[in-house]
Structures are given as structure tokens and as C-alpha cells.
Design a binder for these strands. Structure first.
Length: 321
DNA sequence: AGTGGCTCCTGGCGGC
DNA sequence: TGCCGCCAGGAGCCAC
């Protein structure tokens, strides 16, 4: 399922071929993909050239230049065209894929972008959770503000001090905290589980019980785990493929996610599964002990539970020391 | 305000 | 073999 590393992988791949192309037409096969109807999307987006690709959390943003060609269907009441620039925002949600060539036999794309010269970008999305928005650049801040988007993990705002402040006083489990896009943008189920493993923190620990050194481990683990995901071009679990149809490889080095019943790669203990906030949650009960955190009398030296060294994959490390 | 639960949606899977 | 019911999960929405 596309999280920050998967969306970043899509962005980077599209960056090699989309900018400069003219968006000639938008075809909507599934009206539920957008609050805007096909005519509105055409009026807003077509006749413009792709000028850039950005990412905000798990959202992919396609920047479009000023109109320079007639819209595909410039009639009707919906044809109020912006004079200036436009932004298309895409969220892949669970199964969304942007591909240049649909697989033979695949159901019709939820929407298609016809580009010049001679390219078509298909939005395939089996579970139909993905969404498309379109607006003027001036509306972008409101769009994300309305969603209360938290800081980008790789941005300047996501400091250790920020994380400690965000954790403070929260009774919610760490896992739920990490999935909350208002706290940190872009972390989903896979990378939350993997980051908690790397930080040696139990997913059910109350966020507010995390101590300073633990917060430091979590901060580092989040950045390292997300970066590893980007370096491996995402996790191809379920259905993630990039626009060229390539699969990522991060799933091959997962430590705990969907490894229930298998031995922990660090200590050999059986990986367990529980449900937190309605989400399947995977962890190693030995590497991620459920300690009392700040509770009186429960203070132990952090690091006293360092997992024994054992065989581990070449390009992945045991949870941070 | 913060938190938990429900909803959307479909392919895949287990059980009978 | 075939059918039914359940599950996964991101994020918006609602209730407490």
C-alpha cells in the first residue's frame, strides 16, 4: 500500500517523463474518483503543460502551467477556467497505481490523462479508494490545512524537539500516533511497524510514556526506515508498482510487517501480531518489550534489552542500538 | 480536545 | 464445487 516511500518512488519515476508534456484530455471512467465531474476536471486541468511533480505526505501533486491550448471540452457551466496555474492532487490510498500502460485485461482505469506527444497515464485502482483533486495553487494551503497535515519527515520541521512535543501527554498507542497524519505526514502501516521495531518500542506503548532517549531512537528509526523504503523503491505488498510497472524491493527486507509467526531477524523470537486502532500490527515481543515507560519503579537502563546478535540480512540492521 | 469506531471497496481466503 | 462471510487498510466522519 502506498506510503511516503512508494509515493516518492512514483514521483521520481514520473519526474523522468511527465514534465513538459501537454495534458490534452482527462477521461473519467469512475465518477467517485473525484468530487469534480469530468467536465470540471477537463476545464481545470487540460490545455496545460506539466511543470513539476511534488509530494506532500502520501499525496502526489502535479503542477500544471498556464493554459496554452484549448480545453478538451471548453463548454458548459463547469468550464470556468483558471487563468493562472493549476494543481492536480492524487492520493493512491490502498491500491492506486499510475501506469503508462494498463495490464491487458485490467478493468478500465478510473481516470486517464491523454498527454502530448502520444502518451496516456492510467489511474488503476482496484479498491477504488484513491482520489483526484484539482484546484488553483492558491487553494493548496487550505487543502492541506483542512486535513491538518503534520510535518514532512524529511523536512526541517520534523526535529527531535517536534517529535517529543507531539508525543507528550498522548495516551494513544505509539502505533496509532504514527499513523495519524496530523502528527507526521506519510507514515502508514508498514513503515510504522518497521520503525517501531527499529526503535525497539512496543506498538501499544502510550505515546506520552516515551522517554527522551526512546524518542530519539524513534526519530532516527522513522527517518532511517522511510529512507530505506525510498532506497528500495518502495514495498510491493498488495499491488504497488511504479508508473513503468516496476516493483519495489523493500518488502524483501521487512523485519516484522506481515511476518507473523516467523522468527525475528534480530533475535529469532517469533514475530507476533495484534490489532491497534483497527490496523494489523506486527512486532517482536523480545526486541520491543512492553515496558512501563515512565511508570514509577519501572525505570530500567535503556539498552538493557539489546537483542542478541545473530544472522541478519546484509542490507538491513538489527534495531538501532 | 482527544480518542476510538465506523465507513468506503474489492479480491482473496477460509469454512461449510 | 460453490457459496457465504470475513478481512485488509487510508482517511474522513461521527460520537463519546
Amino acid at each position: 500500500m502506498p506510503e511516503l516511500p512508494e509515493v516518492e518512488t512514483v514521483r521520481r519515476r514520473l519526474l523522468t517523463c511527465l514534465p513538459g508534456l501537454l495534458l490534452r484530455d482527462v477521461v473519467v471512467n469512475d465518477p467517485k474518483v473525484s468530487d469534480l465531474c469530468e467536465a470540471e476536471l477537463r476545464a481545470t486541468l487540460t490545455g496545460r503543460r506539466v511543470t513539476g511533480l511534488r509530494r506532500r505526505g502520501k499525496y502526489l501533486l502535479v503542477d500544471l502551467g498556464p493554459t496554452e491550448a484549448p480545453a478538451a471540452e471548453p463548454t458548459g457551466p463547469a468550464a470556468g477556467r483558471y487563468a493562472g496555474l493549476a494543481v492536480a492532487v492524487i492520493h493512491l490510498r490502498m491500491t492506486g497505481q499510475l501506469v503508462f500502460r494498463p495490464e491487458p485485461g485490467e478493468r478500465p482505469a478510473r481516470f486517464v490523462w491523454r498527454l502530448e506527444p502520444g502518451t496516456e497515464l492510467y489511474f488503476q485502482d482496484v479498491r477504488r479508494f484513491g482520489r483526484l483533486w484539482a484546484f488553483e495553487p492558491a487553494a493548496e494551503d487550505d487543502f492541506f490545512a483542512a486535513r491538518g497535515m503534520g510535518p514532512e519527515p524529511f523536512g526541517p520541521e520534523f526535529t527531535l524537539a517536534y517529535l517529543r512535543g507531539a508525543l507528550a501527554g498522548r495516551r494513544a498507542p505509539l502505533k496509532a500516533f504514527l499513523l495519524d497524519q496530523r502528527r507526521i505526514a506519510g507514515v502508514g502501516n508498514i513503515y510504522a511497524d518497521e520503525a517501531l521495531f527499529r526503535a525497539r518500542l512496543h506498538p501499544l506503548r502510550a505515546a506520552g510514556s516515551v522517554g527522551p532517549r526512546e524518542a530519539q531512537r524513534l526519530h532516527a528509526a522513522l527517518l532511517e526506515t522511510l529512507q530505506a523504503g525510498i532506497d528500495h523503491e518502495g514495498s510491493s505488498i498488495e499491488s504497488f508498482i511504479d508508473p513503468a510497472g516496476e516493483r519495489g524491493s523493500f518488502q524483501e527486507i521487512l523485519s516484522v510487517y506481515q511476518r507473523t509467526g516467523e522468527p525475528c531477524r534480530a533475535c529469532g523470537t517469533t514475530v507476533e501480531r495484534t490489532v491497534v486502532g483497527g490496523r494489523g500490527t506486527h512486532y517482536c515481543p523480545r526486541c520491543q518489550p512492553r515496558r512501563g515507560g515512565m511508570a514509577p519503579g519501572s525505570r530500567r537502563r535503556l539498552g538493557s534489552v539489546a537483542p542478541p546478535r545473530s544472522a541478519k540480512p546484509a542490507d538491513w540492521e538489527a534495531p538501532g542500538r
